[in-house]
Amino acid sequence: MPLRKGRRRRRSAVQAPLRLTSMMDILTVLLLFLLKSFVAEGEVITPAPGVSLPESTSDTGPESSVVVAILDDRILLDGRQVAQVPAGAPGGDLLIPALAEQLDLSRSQGEAIATRRGDADSYAPKLAIQGDRDIPFALLQRVMYTCNHSGYGDIALVVLGAS
């Protein structure tokens, strides 16, 4: 309608930029904090999902190693489920064959890499156990026995240190 059109005001195109300065401040602080924690940390071990590690006063840092996680009756090797041990399993043989098989494979791969690098003589297979705080000793015992059987003599029990 021509009358209404004539009444309509002309609006000027005003640009309203976002004020990003305060957000930039937050992001800069966050970035610096994350960069610091990224640089300060040595070897990083991420707890397996679902594993609630026990707390300890130990302050020894973790080293690069093969990681075996024990969660309820499941055993994971480097994040992959390799065996299942029923909780009430009879305690005859301590060896867990499925885990032993995978550990042997992992150890032979480690040895092959060390041979290629030329330091096969100094190669010492290392293993870290991430056990849930509620697992019974019988299961831990079987896993440790199997690890030792597969040549992993250096075993580190992964715990949550006092913060």
């Binding site: 707890p47 302050d59 020894t60 690890c147 580190a156 992964v158």
Partner: peptide, 8 residues
């Protein structure tokens, strides 16, 4: 995360 070292 820390560890308790053991030798089998």
């Amino acid at each position: 995360i820390t560890v308790i070292e053991m030798k089998a």
